[in-house]
């Protein structure tokens, strides 16, 4: 029973830096910025930002799905290789994460901007510059690029754990390769898909740096708005309310997804 005390430091940490800040966010969200009195006007103001909320969710959802489509085959292929190759490929996937997130996003700016690498290359073969940067596409690209490893990791972890005998059992019962995948491998990787989507969707929906650098005023995301409430508009109460609503929306999205994929015991809940 003494082992229980070992969790003590973290419990204190959580109380100090998770629970109390959440209470503060709640307090700010529900009080007036001038008078400090209880009010719902901050939450009521949300309706003006509805399109931005929807755009954030929409872009994050598209990015998650692209990450899944790109990441699943990669995770599957890595899991099929020998242990040494596996470690090497896994390291390659992780490698970009060792480089600063800001730097990686700025690199994309250099590639995509109007006078960037792609457009100057196109110019040299006589094609007029394409509007690559400051589009939804560029923001999605930035999200996919930055968060793809977060999709591959949980998928790989789940796929590698699928018992090879289950694949053989399916073959034994008449499945060709496609059927083995559809009936055994894919259903058994659902927990990985769910946690992969969660790990991509949650940071993507609240990102602000990617949209600031790769997007335009037309692609402002909720993360940008929250940031501006604290840094330029000096309305922490509205920012807190937005954070609160965003958090609730994320919970709803995850809840829907977990419900949709059935009550799998291994499903990660955030």
């Amino acid at each position: 029973m003494k082992n229980k005390f070992l969790a003590g430091p973290y419990l204190v940490w959580m109380a100090l830096f998770t629970i109390i800040p959440l209470v503060i966010v709640l307090y700010f969200a529900l009080t007036d910025s001038v008078t400090g009195r209880f009010t719902l006007s901050n939450l009521a103001a949300m309706k003006d930002y509805l399109p931005i909320f929807l755009r954030s969710i929409w872009l994050a959802a598209i990015s998650s799905i692209i990450c899944l489509i790109l990441g699943y085959p990669v995770a599957w292929c890595i899991a099929q290789t020998g242990p040494k190759v596996q470690r090497f490929l896994y390291m390659l996937v992780m490698l970009p994460m060792c480089i600063s997130f800001l730097l990686r996003t700025l690199a994309w700016v250099a590639i995509l901007e109007d006078t960037g690498m792609i457009n100057s290359l196109l110019g040299r073969i006589g094609i007029s510059p394409l509007p690559l940067i400051r589009t939804n596409g560029a923001v999605i690209l930035g999200m996919v690029y930055n968060y793809l490893p977060y999709m591959i990791m949980p998928l790989y972890t789940v796929i590698i754990k699928i018992d090879p005998r289950l694949v053989e059992a399916a073959q034994d019962l008449g499945c060709d390769h496609a059927q083995v995948f559809g009936k055994v491998t894919l259903p058994l990787s659902v927990p990985g898909i769910v946690s992969g989507i969660t790990m991509v969707f949650v940071p993507a929906v609240s990102t602000f740096y990617i949209s600031q650098k790769l997007g335009s005023s037309g692609t402002t995301l909720i993360g940008d708005v929250i940031e501006s409430q604290f840094k330029t508009a000096y309305n922490p109460n509205l920012g807190a309310a937005m954070s609160l609503v965003l958090m609730i929306l994320i919970f709803i999205c995850i809840g829907l997804m977990n419900r949709f994929t059935g009550d799998d015991d291994e499903v990660m809940t955030l």
Partner: peptide
């Protein structure tokens, strides 16, 4: 002939039942 085309079925060591 691959396993899925043989009229042979197997009971695997430790069963290999589909957990899903």
């Amino acid at each position: 002939v691959p396993p899925h085309k043989r009229h042979i079925n197997t009971v695997f060591q430790r069963y290999a039942l589909f957990p899903h």
